[in-house]
Nucleic acid binder design. Structure first.
Lengths: 344, 344
DNA sequence: GAGGGGAACTGAAACGTTTCAGTTTTTTGC
DNA sequence: GCAAAAAACTGAAACGTTTCAGTTCCCCTC
């Protein structure tokens, strides 16, 4: 296929081998060391030579062989995103990925996705990456207050950024959504609508942001003199059936909640449809505040209150932090808190 | 952090270097060639030796250095998924990724995500991968009838599998959803409900499945004596506003449709909310059939008719095909058509 | 007991890169 | 005009793997 690119035509005979440093060395009459150093802008190479080498390199479409670089330097030019492959109905994961990819494009870095099964040991992928040196830096989410992955990576000197803060004693890069602000905003909005008995459907309590949300929720509920109607053993990660059962149980109980706070659109959908099965309508019989990334929920139930959280910008933020960490920036300067704007 | 794993403790002095073939060679008293061949189960190594080498390798946690292998053999042990980073509100992409990851885990293959901007040249990432040899095989979606990426990969001998068929003269692995069946089922269901004027909101017409769907749609509409009420220049990939404007235009026109067929949940949501703004209710004033992966849409508007398409199994199917292709399987044997089960 | 053949093993080279330790050439200082 | 210093360049080695081309040893055959 002739795609009209400027790339040189393969030599008519052989299978058109990729140019290497040796190719450039031969063409310029220089040594391969000089070519390498010229392309890496080393100080002991003449400016004219550098220019000449760069020109030839560009002309013949030279691209450094990653395996060569990696073997010699140990640098992989890979960022690894560790992703739970479960508990993800709406694809927040892909938006994170798109954000990271976007930030990484134009850099020499590739994104590799390292999956793990949430029911097994979350340390497995992290150990694998460290032991095999398969990435220069790591990004992960579902951060826990005393996250053993963060500790391990820190101890082993592997740069990383987390989607979500930790409670750990040392500093590390993170990107987080201000879930406490969200909690406060949610309760205020519910109180303003005259709602008094509030149920929080929390994220799994081992996650750091679940703790923060729960704290903010209790504080706000207390401050405004509302009542906390707790769910039993149910989180936004549970199945549709589990959530429906629990929500319907609570809605039939003595203290029927008239307000819900919930941290994911998918579970908000489950709550609403569970309530509707009992003939209860959002906006009339109860109000619900949810976090969501795209206005799917809002679209369908405009009565629902929604606070936006953008996973794509989280991705670009995380990738950016990780790149800066690799360039030597301090962890403290790489901590970004996304403050929710409005509730609508 | 002591994680209690069986991995040997780092030597108290140095920084605990990773074991290599040389390490095993030293420990067993064999040559490094022998060790290499033993681990690769070469025929000219004694069975006892192989066993011994494998034992030691396992004991010290030997893992082959990917850069070494790659540099020597050119094999990258990487599968590249080329993903458009736009036009993806609901994260189908992540389910594809999870499916692929799932299939790849336990193999030596890593998944790397190569993004591209749909508005620029789709050949860019494909050329990059081929030119730099950065993957052993490629998976991509948004397949076009005469897909230049497929042609290019085929011409350059790079194994690949597509999510969606093509019209090309040569065979290649693909995984596809039987969109024609979907179209026929949709029209039948609408006709059975007495709907007569049907509008199809198609995928972008340059995509292969858009053509197939359009064909099946027209055939079924003709066969059942219904009327096709076409949209103008609008597809499921357009923005919410664009879809809303066009749907409302068509709903206000002389031939107001009473049935909709649509190939993505996100755009179905837009259609419904556009119709509801005009006071039209699904199930009453019109029916709508959509394809969707998770029952988000169905959950909210149970009146809507839905056909399930699972992107995760598509991912495992694609990964499986690509692995088999790498193992030498014929393209013809790696073509999987997912037939939709029921409409509900 | 010489020769052939097979089984089991191995040293050296190569993949493409960077870095160590120079070497050569030019410039500077006096 | 000479020594010293600075600038510009370079060969060889090394990273870990596989493969080429052997080598060694032993057993079998005649």
């Amino acid at each position: 296929m002739d795609d009209g690119s400027a790339r040189p035509a393969p030599a008519s005979g052989g299978p058109a081998k990729r140019p290497t440093l040796k190719t450039i060395a031969f063409m310029t009459g220089l040594g391969v060391t000089t070519v390498s150093r010229a392309l890496n802008d080393a100080p002991d190479i003449g400016e004219a030579t550098k220019e000449r080498v760069r020109l030839v390199a560009k002309q013949i479409g030279y691209r450094p062989n990653r395996a060569g670089v990696r073997l010699r330097t140990g640098r992989t030019n890979v960022i690894s995103l560790i992703l739970s492959t479960e508990t993800e109905i709406l694809g927040l994961g892909s938006h994170l990925i798109y954000g990271i990819s976007e930030r990484l494009s134009g850099t020499p870095y590739h994104l590799i996705v390292t999956p793990y099964d949430i029911r097994t040991d979350p340390m497995v992928p992290v150990r694998y990456i460290v032991e095999t040196g398969s990435a220069d830096a790591v990004i992960f989410s579902r951060t826990m207050p005393q996250d053993p992955r963060a500790v391990y990576l820190h101890d082993n000197g592997m740069p990383f950024a987390t989607h979500g803060r930790t409670d750990l004693a040392f500093q590390h890069p993170w990107y987080d959504f201000d879930i406490e602000k969200f909690g406060a905003m949610a309760i205020e909005a519910l109180a303003a609508r005259g709602r008094r008995q509030i149920t929080l459907l929390p994220p799994p309590m081992n996650l750091n942001y679940a703790q923060l949300l729960m704290g903010a929720f209790r504080r706000a509920v207390g401050d405004l003199g509302l009542m906390d109607v707790p769910v039993h053993n149910t989180t936004i990660d549970d199945s549709r059936d589990a959530i429906r059962t629990e929500i319907q149980r609570i809605l039939r109980s003595d203290h029927r909640p008239d307000g819900f706070v919930c941290a994911s659109a998918a579970s908000a959908i489950y709550i609403i449809s569970a309530a509707e099965e009992l003939g209860l309508k959002p906006g009339r019989d109860f109000d619900l505040v949810s976090k969501e990334s795209y206005e799917i929920l809002k679209q369908f139930r405009p009565e629902v209150l929604v606070v936006g959280e953008d996973f794509r910008t989280a991705g670009t933020g995380l990738a950016d932090s990780v790149l800066k960490a690799l360039a030597g920036a301090s962890a403290e300067s790489l901590q970004i808190l996304e403050v929710p704007e409005d509730i609508h």
